[in-house]
């Protein structure tokens, strides 16, 4: 178990360089689950990664919240059930939207009806996949973004963005389950926290071209 790495680390007296280590130790001693600690430290890093992919590469995804949550779900409930349910929800939402296209309804009523479809589908799917309540709720919640994009920009863009979101979720999953990072969080949480903040500050000031833009503007004289 990953927690065992903490056993060998000796903590000095409380100070500005090791206060997070003390907090982690305290939390674990009072019964907080280690996954929680890892999540809280690594989710900001996943979020930073999502923004890095947006600003350095140019992949959009559905905002920042959705891919981060997807990564967490994939990590907590395993890649297969999470991914399948994600795809099932998207497929049902698309189908339902096609069905509802002919019926003229008010915007919110239509959204509510799409939710109805999604929930019924998830109910069916739960016979095959074992997922925690929270994961299911979050998955349903992120469908909202998907449906919104689908209504506003059409299914093509919605599916492209969802695929990008899924890729981002997978990359996030890799980060979350990378033993090296997990050990870094537990052994050097100060470096992790500070590093994530610095990474975000740097990304937020980046004014260069995105990777995909080099392709988009390849015909222009440099």
């Amino acid at each position: 178990m990953i927690i065992q790495v903490l056993g060998v680390q000796a903590l000095g007296p409380l100070g500005p360089t090791n206060f997070l280590k003390h907090i982690i130790r305290l939390a674990l001693d009072s019964g907080v689950r280690p996954e929680m600690i890892l999540l809280l430290f690594l989710l900001p890093l996943v979020a930073a990664l999502v923004s890095a992919v947006r600003y350095l590469v140019g992949l959009q995804g559905l905002g920042i919240f959705t891919p981060v949550m997807l990564a967490a779900i994939l990590w907590l409930s395993g890649i297969n059930p999470g991914a399948y349910l994600f795809l099932i929800i998207l497929a049902i939402a698309t189908l339902a939207r096609i069905l509802l296209k002919k019926v003229r309804l008010h915007y919110l009523a239509r959204m509510a009806l799409l939710f109805w479809f999604v929930c019924v589908a998830v109910l069916m799917a739960l016979f095959w996949f074992k997922l925690s309540t929270l994961s299911v709720l979050i998955l349903i919640l992120i469908t909202q973004d998907f449906i919104k994009v689908q209504i506003n920009k059409g299914w093509r863009i919605a599916w492209r963005l969802s695929l990008e979101t899924f890729i981002l979720g997978l990359i996030g999953l890799v980060l979350l389950s990378w033993p090296l990072l997990q050990r870094l969080v537990l052994l050097q949480p100060e470096i992790m926290v500070l590093g994530t903040a610095v990474l975000n500050l740097l990304l937020g000031r980046f004014t260069g071209m995105r990777l995909l833009e080099h392709r988009r503007f390849r015909r222009l004289p440099k």
């Binding site: 600003y55 140019g58 004014t207 071209m209 995105r210 503007f217 222009l220 440099k222």
Partner: peptide, 9 residues
């Protein structure tokens, strides 16, 4: 590329 305007810039 210094002359092309990207979204970031």
């Amino acid at each position: 590329s210094t002359h092309v305007l990207g979204i970031n810039a």
